[in-house]
Design a protein around this nucleic acid. Structure first.
Length: 315
RNA sequence: GCCGAGAUAGCUCAGUUGGUAGAGCACACGACUGAAAAUUGUGGGGUCGCCAGUCCGAUCCUGGCUCUCGGCA
C-alpha cells in the first residue's frame, strides 16, 4: 500500500446531472488524459438521449473507454467493468497518458477504488431464475431464512425484504460451494487514486435535471425508445430498467400519458441522486470536493500539480 | 338561496363501535462484492377546520360557524 509506487488514476464522482461528463472532457484535454466511463448506462449502444451520453463531438477527440460496448440485450456486470477498466488503465498508462475514470455508478467506482475481489464464477442465469421462482413460491422472507441457515453472517448483512440480494447470496453459495460472507474481499487500491467529487446545492441540481429531462424529450427520447423496442429490447432487460426508458416504454404501451412519464422520470432521477450520495459522502476525507457553482477545472489542475510535487518531494 | 358530500402529515387519502392517529407519495438518512439508473432498510413530521355542549375523557357524538366540492334553483 505505497501510493508513491503506483501510477496515478483520476476519478471523478458525483450525482447525475452535476456536470461530470463535460468537466472530465475539459480536464482530459488540458492534462493529456483519456476517459474511462464508470456509468452502467453508457455501456449500451443505442441508448444515447435518455442516458445523457456525450456525443462524438462533445467528446472533443478525447478517447473514451466503456461507452457503447454492449448491446442492450446483454447483461453487463461489476466484474466485467473491473476487468475492462483495469485493462484500459494499463493501456492508457502505457501510452503515457492519464486515465480519468468518470461516472455515477457508485458500486463500480467504489469496487475499483477498494479493489474488491469478486467471487469467481460464470453467471448462471438458470440458477438465478430458479432462485427467483423459489422466492415467489415461499416468499422472500422465507428465502432469507433459508440463507440464514446456511450462511448466517450473510443473512445478517442483507435486509430480509431484499429478495434480490438474498438471491444473489444464494447464487454465489450454490455456485462456489462457499459461504457468501467469506467472499467479500478487498485487495485495496491498485493505483494511486486521486478522487474528485463534484457538488451542487441539491435543490439547484434537482431543477437542473428537471430541465435536462425536458430537453431529452425535445431531442427525441420517445423515438429512441421506439427504435429500441422495434429491435425487441423490452422492459425486462437490465439496460432498459434505466430511468427514462422504463417510463417511456410504459407510455408507449399506453399505460401512462406523457406527462405522467415525465413526472415519474423526475421522481426517479431525484431518488437516484439521493442513492448516489450514499456511495460518495460529503464527509469522505478521501474525496477532493469541488462546487460546480463556478467552473472548478483550473483549481483541480492546481491541486493535482501541488499533489504531484508533494509526492516527488516525498521520494 | 336550497340539498348533499367533505375538511386528518407538505400532497392524496385510510381510520378510531369515544381512550390524543396510520398508509402511499414527498422529504431526510442508511445498506450495497459478477443485474446497481437495480434492489432495499430506517427516520422526522399532525393543537385530526374553528367555537361551544355531552362525557371521567372528544379527532370520533350533538349544535353552531367558516371554507371546499358536487347537484338544484
Amino acid at each position: 500500500m505505497l501510493p508513491r509506487n503506483k501510477k496515478r488514476v483520476i476519478l471523478i464522482v458525483g450525482p447525475t446531472g452535476v456536470g461530470k461528463t463535460s468537466l472530465s472532457i475539459d480536464l482530459a484535454s488540458k492534462i493529456n488524459g483519456e476517459i474511462i466511463s464508470a456509468d452502467s448506462r453508457y455501456l449500451y449502444k443505442g441508448m444515447d438521449i435518455g442516458t445523457a451520453k456525450p456525443s462524438k463531438e462533445e467528446r472533443n477527440g478525447i478517447p473514451h473507454y466503456l461507452i457503447d460496448v454492449a448491446e442492450p440485450s446483454e447483461t453487463w456486470s461489476l466484474s466485467i467493468f473491473l476487468e475492462r477498466t483495469r485493462e484500459a488503465i494499463e493501456k492508457i498508462h502505457a501510452d503515457n497518458k492519464i486515465p480519468i475514470v468518470v461516472g455515477g455508478t457508485g458500486q463500480y467506482i467504489r469496487a475499483l477504488m477498494e479493489g474488491w475481489r469478486i467471487p469467481e464464477f460464470e453467471p448462471d442465469e438458470h440458477l438465478r431464475r430458479v432462485l427467483n421462482d423459489w422466492s415467489e413460491e415461499i416468499g422472500g422472507m422465507d428465502l432469507h431464512r433459508k440463507l440464514a441457515m446456511i450462511d448466517n453472517d450473510a443473512a445478517r448483512i442483507i435486509d430480509p425484504a431484499n429478495v434480490r440480494r438474498t438471491v444473489r447470496a444464494l447464487e454465489v453459495i450454490f455456485t462456489t460451494g462457499k459461504r457468501f460472507s467469506t467472499q467479500r474481499l478487498k485487495d485495496g487500491p491498485a493505483f494511486d487514486y486521486w478522487v474528485i467529487g463534484l457538488t451542487m446545492d441539491r435543490n439547484q441540481l434537482f431543477k437542473q435535471v428537471d430541465d435536462r429531462i425536458e430537453e431529452m424529450f425535445t431531442r427525441g427520447l420517445v423515438d429512441e425508445v421506439k427504435i429500441l423496442m422495434t429491435k425487441g429490447y423490452g422492459s425486462d432487460l437490465p439496460s432498459m430498467s434505466a430511468i427514462g426508458y422504463r417510463e417511456v416504454i410504459r407510455h408507449l404501451k399506453g399505460e401512462i400519458d406523457l406527462e405522467e412519464a415525465k413526472v415519474l422520470m423526475r421522481k426517479g432521477t431525484r431518488k437516484f441522486i439521493r442513492r448516489q450520495a450514499n456511495w460518495f459522502k460529503a464527509s469522505d476525507q478521501g474525496i477532493h470536493w469541488y462546487s460546480m457553482d463556478t467552473d472548478p477545472v483550473d483549481m483541480i489542475i492546481d491541486d493535482l500539480e501541488r499533489d504531484s510535487e508533494k509526492k516527488r518531494g516525498d521520494d
